[in-house]
């Protein structure tokens, strides 16, 4: 956990180039955002295997399906809002239902898109993609994990949704990604925060703030949203008795909902879902937005402390 900041998008682009050198079945697609998603790095080295179709997210997903049906391993990228929202039906009908080998890697997930505002801040994508049979959903926690995740999805047949953020992220892991497994990032006894993506780092910092107040927090990184790691959720509930989820996503249909399902079916304890509370975001710098919606370390610490006091005092 060296906390060096690194761009997950750049890690994605670099890993695609490495994969392109190793395997000639790797094909990459984009819809006029390749300089932002970093798929352009692949396009520069492998122009014959790179298809930037212009502003046609729906067409892109359909073409990706056709390429996959002919044996290609296809990475299709855009911003999360367009890759999952604009092209949802194409992803459903042409990729998920036939279970084709397409990896939808979306950048710019969540409100941390920042200044572009609510139109570009995708807070429903985890829900949309998790709801699809055959689709597996991963939110890498840092750039090291991005590299492992991209290699993993390239090696596994069938569709995946991988959600990346726009902003640089601190490296919290050495990239030892295990599909379908959460990871305890910090041990604690009073309460567990289960977080995903960018919110894991903030939750770890929040845990330090709460330590000063005598609250000992466990923090779990949940990189795989689907299939969710039931065991780690149940174990955390047993060990600490109180769960809070934090995500840069709507609290409906995201990480919080998945955790609530596992708890209510297996080991009901009090829990609180924190994130975007069924509201659209707004324009602003990404870090001021996290502060505005109490999703930075101070905000998380405040929400967690109030919840802890309400339940345990």
């Amino acid at each position: 956990m060296n906390w060096d900041y690194e761009s997950p998008r750049k890690a994605y682009g670099e890993t695609l180039v490495e994969l392109g050198r190793e395997r000639d079945d790797i094909v990459v697609m984009d819809a006029d955002l390749s300089t932002s998603t970093k798929t352009a790095m692949f396009g520069t080295e492998f122009p014959e295997r790179f298809f930037n179709v212009g502003l046609q997210e729906q067409n892109m997903m359909g073409i990706a399906a056709g390429l996959a049906r002919c044996g290609k391993t296809v990475f299709a990228s855009s911003f999360a809002v367009f890759a999952t929202g604009r092209a949802y039906d194409q992803v459903r009908q042409s990729i998920a239902y036939p279970r084709l080998n397409v990896k939808i890697v979306a950048t710019h997930g969540g409100i941390t898109v920042g200044e572009d505002g609510a139109s570009h801040q995708m807070i429903e994508d985890i829900g949309l993609m998790s709801g699809l049979p055959n689709m597996r959903v991963i939110v890498p926690v840092d750039s090291n994990e991005v590299r492992s995740v991209i290699r993993f999805v390239a090696s596994e047949d069938g569709p995946f949704y991988v959600r990346l953020t726009r902003t640089a992220l601190p490296n919290l892991t050495d990239g030892d990604f295990k599909f379908g497994k959460g990871a305890v990032m910090r041990d604690g006894t009073d309460m567990t925060i289960i977080a995903t993506g960018i919110e894991v780092g903030y939750s770890l910092k929040a845990a330090e703030l709460l330590k000063e107040k005598g609250i000992d927090m466990q923090v779990v990184n949940m990189s795989t949203i689907k299939p969710i790691d039931r065991d780690i959720i149940i174990k955390s509930a047993r060990d600490t008795g109180l769960i809070m989820t934090v995500e840069d996503h709507n609290i409906y249909n995201g990480l919080g909902s998945r955790v609530a399902e596992v708890l209510s079916e297996n080991y009901p304890v009090r829990m609180l879902r924190h994130g975007m509370r069924d509201i659209f975001g707004r324009s602003g710098r990404w870090d001021t937005l996290l502060s505005h919606y109490e999703m930075d370390e101070k905000g998380i610490a405040k929400v967690a402390e109030n919840f802890y006091k309400e339940v345990k005092s």
Binding site: G66, L67, R69
Partner: peptide, 23 residues
């Protein structure tokens, strides 16, 4: 060769297949 039924998507799939053939 392709799941269809939600209209408007088959030509895209056909493009993917045609591109793969040329590749």
């Amino acid at each position: 060769d392709m799941c269809t039924g939600s209209l408007g998507q088959g030509l895209s799939a056909g493009i993917g297949m045609a591109l793969a053939g040329k590749m």
